[in-house]
Design a protein around this nucleic acid. Structure first.
Ligand code: MN
Ligand code: MN
Ligand code: ZN
Ligand code: ZN
Lengths: 143, 143
DNA sequence: GGTGTGTTGAAATTAATTATCAATATCTTA
DNA sequence: TAAGATATTGATAATTAATTTCAACACACC
């Protein structure tokens, strides 16, 4: 299962940094990886709280930052909306079509676009590491 | 000149909303349009202050929000860095290569990528309005 | 099990943005 | 062009999101 793979990566990162594993850390990790992506801090906090009602808000933040550092999560900031956190290792890379009306995220991949991006970077003597493509507009239901 | 065109759009927007033009508003508009893009609130504040030292910080924020609403500016949020504001009407559309080491923005356009994006949206029955493509990596100097 | 030190929850702090408010400026109209 | 209605401003307070602080606690290595 992919989730176990992601967990291993995180535990490895924790150990490598001389940090420690805790009950709370494991809960947050598991809830995050089960969340399906695009989750806000508050949503994650609420979900973790259902399993461990004594969890602190700061602990959610601290561990989300670790997930970012470990490369398991990525921030998504859209306009004035709350920051969302996308899972990076559980799922294949993908880009987003984002509906300006209902806020829906449609996940897409286009291999040709990916290739052209690399070529474009190459032309500018730029070494690409990752990218973010977001197309805003109106989804099937809202257009 | 393109700057006058952008100014006209802004003044039109202001009037349409039943708002009023002011000395401060015109200063902020002019400084923003002369800034070259990717400016932070603080940088804009400092630049405007040089022309009008009595300007308030809140006024910068209020008018930046109007520029956003009018479609003349767009927010760029990269990781934990301060929000930057990109000019939208003074300049042609472009995407960004962003150096993870020195923070440099390289501006690029690839017509083929743009076309493929539209095709991709079409396939999902999605009507694209605008998009944001950011490629993170290392620039010529830093790689 | 003991010990050193990383982690936690609660509360305080910081940083960014927005709201409040009284004084002032702008725009429309007469 | 003077008047009046109301939008705007600057200063400051309030709000929000994220981080820091700190004493109690818990994990990891022995
Ligand atoms: Mn996604
Ligand atoms: Mn740019
Ligand atoms: Zn929609
Ligand atoms: Zn660089």
């Amino acid at each position: 299962m992919k989730k176990e793979e992601a967990k291993r990566i995180f535990r490895q990162y924790i150990k490598k940094q001389g940090l420690r594993n805790t009950r709370q850390r494991e809960e947050i990790l598991d809830v995050f990886l089960s969340s399906g992506g695009h989750i806000t801090v508050d949503e994650l906090f609420d979900k973790v709280k259902k399993r461990d009602s004594s969890i602190g808000y700061a602990t959610i933040h601290r561990n989300l930052n670790l997930l970012l550092e470990a490369g398991l999560a990525e921030e998504i900031k859209i306009g004035k909306e709350k920051t969302r956190y996308e899972q990076m290792h559980m799922r294949e890379h993908h880009d987003h079509l984002i509906c300006l009306e209902c806020g829906r995220f449609i996940e897409v991949v286009d291999e040709n676009i990916e290739k052209l991006q690399n070529r474009l970077a190459e032309e500018k003597e730029f070494t690409p590491v990752r990218h973010k493509l977001e197309i805003y507009g109106y989804c099937k239901k809202c257009r």
